[in-house]
């Protein structure tokens, strides 16, 4: 699984430009799938299993895209101005490396006018790609780039860019593979959705949920932690197991889904934590309000430094996330029975 994390995290896939990562994921999942679709917004939708009498049509969503930048202007001296694609924070930009989809590399610096004391806003930042004029600049308005950072293992921890949400993508791929290769029984018709444009507003998840019309939805994404110096007082820590989301900044999980996830974790003795995230949200929000409504939950992989180029997860948490997801998908969903 580590090699898959490394491979997926390194492939660029900023919001709206998920072609390369989609192709890579498709190659991994195709052998396991009953059906593979790429829809109008570029979501990769993989169907697996048949709906049994006690089963549900279930949508599982992990987003393909990562935050990135888009060039807005090349100035007379060849410096590239840019805007964020998704939640890009200036604090994580300065001194960083980016790679454009056309292969051009660049470094980010900032207008020195206001000095070093105050964090400059994004429009005071620029990318230096080594050009001297618009004429020799290999980047133009509208070109997109991702942050560059190599893959590293620090003990049990894994650090690289784009773990938000390539780690969720890996968890879905791995769960699908286990279900398929180990011939596990599932009463459900499962749709593994590798969604697009999550970082700019859950856009792919909303349209794919409409297409699938599921009985239940789960997103698999990262969540922040409360275990760093003077960090937020959040009851989620790295290495203490997958987090089961109760609420985040944009959604309240369906309480029945939360109970089902917690009791499944307890039954299989998988460590887990309850999550309340104050800012941010996931694909589950978009799924919940689709059509006549969908009961949703979210399985979160705890992750430090989210939206920085050095996102960090614990490998044990990742393994437990896969175990929990497989356990959830292999069995009936008791709480939703009897629903009209």
């Amino acid at each position: 699984m580590k090699s898959l994390i490394k491979k997926f995290a390194q492939i660029p896939g900023p919001s709206g430009y998920e072609n390369q990562i989609r192709a890579a994921v498709r190659a991994e999942v195709e052998p396991c799938a009953n059906e593979v679709i790429v829809d109008a917004l570029g979501n990769l939708i993989v169907r697996w299993g048949e709906k049994g009498p006690d089963g549900l049509r279930m949508m599982l969503s992990a987003h393909l895209d990562e935050i990135g930048v888009i060039a807005t202007h090349v100035d007379k001296k060849g410096f590239v101005r840019f805007a964020g694609l998704g939640g890009v924070h200036p604090a994580y930009c300065v001194g960083g490396h980016v790679r454009f989809l056309n292969g051009t590399r660049g470094v980010i610096s900032f207008e020195k006018e206001s000095g070093l004391k105050k964090m400059p806003s994004l429009d005071k930042l620029f990318i230096d790609v080594g050009a001297t004029s618009p004429g020799d600049c290999p980047v133009g308005v509208g070109d997109v780039a991702v942050f560059a950072r190599k893959y590293q293992e620090l003990g049990e921890k894994i650090v690289t860019k784009a773990l938000d949400d390539r780690i969720g993508v890996v968890v879905l791929v791995e769960a699908l593979r286990q279900l398929h290769e180990e011939n596990l029984d599932s009463p459900h018709e499962l749709y593994f959705v590798f969604s697009t444009q999550e970082e700019v507003g859950l856009r792919g998840a909303g349209t794919s949920a409409y297409h699938i019309n599921p009985d239940l939805g789960l997103s698999v994404d990262v969540t922040s932690t409360g275990d760093t110096p003077k960090g937020s007082k959040m009851e989620v820590r790295l290495g203490e197991g997958p987090a089961i989301k109760v609420r985040d900044g944009g959604m309240l999980s369906d309480p029945r889904v939360v109970d089902w996830m917690v009791s499944t974790a307890e039954e299989h003795e998988i460590p887990c934590q309850l999550e309340i995230l104050k800012g941010g949200t996931t694909d589950a929000r978009a799924i919940q309000v689709t059509r006549a409504g969908v009961p949703v939950g979210c399985l979160s992989v705890p992750c430090r430094y989210v939206h920085s180029p050095s996102e960090m997860v614990d490998y044990g948490d990742v393994e437990d996330s896969v175990r929990l997801l497989v356990a959830l998908l292999s069995d009936q969903v008791p709480q939703l029975e009897g629903e009209e």
């Binding site: 959604m251 309240l252 006549a292 409504g293």
Partner: peptide, 16 residues
């Protein structure tokens, strides 16, 4: 349900 958060109830009942 959920008017105070996402209007999820009104959205989905109107569709249904």
């Amino acid at each position: 349900a959920q008017e105070e958060e996402t209007m999820a109830g009104a959205k989905t009942s109107a569709y249904d």
